[in-house]
């Protein structure tokens, strides 16, 4: 059975602000979808629509059914703003949230320890949440999101505020959930995270979908017109070569050339290497970061 989150013709106005404009995309099981966009592009509004927090026009279904209290049990949601109960202990907090997902206390309790180990949480079951560091509190909240084994995982900016080590722990658990067949959708404005773990991506700009597809397809759609080279040739000389539009200096003798046409690469290889050994010559599609900047830039024109 396929678990698909299907969003079609999603439209939402806040007063006069057109927050979402005809948004269409699918999130499939066993795949990770990254929802990218600037602040205010409509990422959280999309999540809030999925979770039925707000009224919207259009259709959102999970396995063909509308999302309601019953389907909530299959959803794990991490809100953008992190928060836990003030006075509770680690165990009380996790058990309470799991109960709201219809997991009985005696189902949840034996699993907490494992999760804490997996996320390397400093503290034990009876630690007061207030006494934990911010990072550890964030991990507890992630555990709350994932412990009931949701089929659809929605994470709003999960990487914000995590150090690289903890970001890696999070990536691992997201990949693990994917391996278990979950459908995962998360928002981010850090393209590196998206590039690393996402299978698909959707980019929103002012409430409209500007990019939609698998990460590779999206990148290829922009053509392999970026060339990374390491050469003693000066910048000016490189600029004069045929097919080169712009030259960025990355480092000493390291450049990134923007090509007018991917086919120019063949000729350029000859001209730059001159038939000799060359340390680096790599022709690539633009990175998501660049695509992101480019797409964002379009609005300003």
């Amino acid at each position: 059975m396929n678990f698909i989150l299907h969003i079609s013709k999603l439209d939402k106005y806040f007063d006069n602000l057109h927050a979402l404009n005809d948004v269409n995309f699918d999130a499939k099981d066993g795949r990770i979808l990254g929802l990218i966009g600037q602040n205010g592009a409509g990422k959280s509004t999309t999540f809030h629509s999925i979770l039925d927090f707000i009224k919207y026009n259009g259709e959102i279904t999970w396995n063909g059914n509308p999302i309601n209290e019953k389907t909530f049990d299959e959803i794990g949601y991490l809100p953008e703003e992190r928060s836990l109960m003030e006075k509770a202990t680690v165990q009380q907090q996790i058990v309470y949230f799991a109960k709201l997902k219809n997991r009985k206390a005696n189902w949840t309790k034996p699993r907490i320890k494992n999760w804490m180990k997996k996320f390397d949480v400093k503290g034990d079951l009876n630690s007061k949440l207030k006494s934990l560091s911010k990072g550890n509190q964030q991990k507890i909240q992630l555990i709350c999101t994932l412990i009931h084994e949701p089929k659809l995982i929605i994470l709003d900016e999960p990487f914000s505020g995590l150090d690289p080590v903890n970001a890696d722990l999070l990536k691992q658990s997201i990949l693990e959930a994917k391996a278990n067949g979950a459908t995962i959708i998360f928002s981010s404005h850090n393209m590196n995270n998206v590039e690393e773990i996402c299978d698909d991506l959707v980019m929103l700009r002012n409430g409209e979908v500007v990019l939609n597809g698998s990460v590779q397809a999206v990148r290829n759609q922009f053509g392999k017109n970026e060339l990374y080279v390491t050469t003693p040739m000066p910048k000016e000389e490189l600029r004069q070569l045929p097919g080169v539009e712009t030259v960025f200096v990355r480092d000493n003798e390291k450049y990134k050339l923007k090509l007018s046409n991917p086919d120019a690469g063949v000729e350029l290889f000859k001209l730059i290497s001159k038939g000799e050994y060359i340390e680096e010559f790599s022709q690539q599609p633009p990175s998501l970061d660049e695509i992101f900047r480019e797409k964002v830039g379009e609005t300003n024109e």
């Binding site: 927090f53 909530f72 049990d73 949601y77």
Partner: peptide, 8 residues
């Protein structure tokens, strides 16, 4: 928000 993504 967590509670409302679990119950009504």
């Amino acid at each position: 928000e967590v509670i409302f993504s679990s119950t009504t």
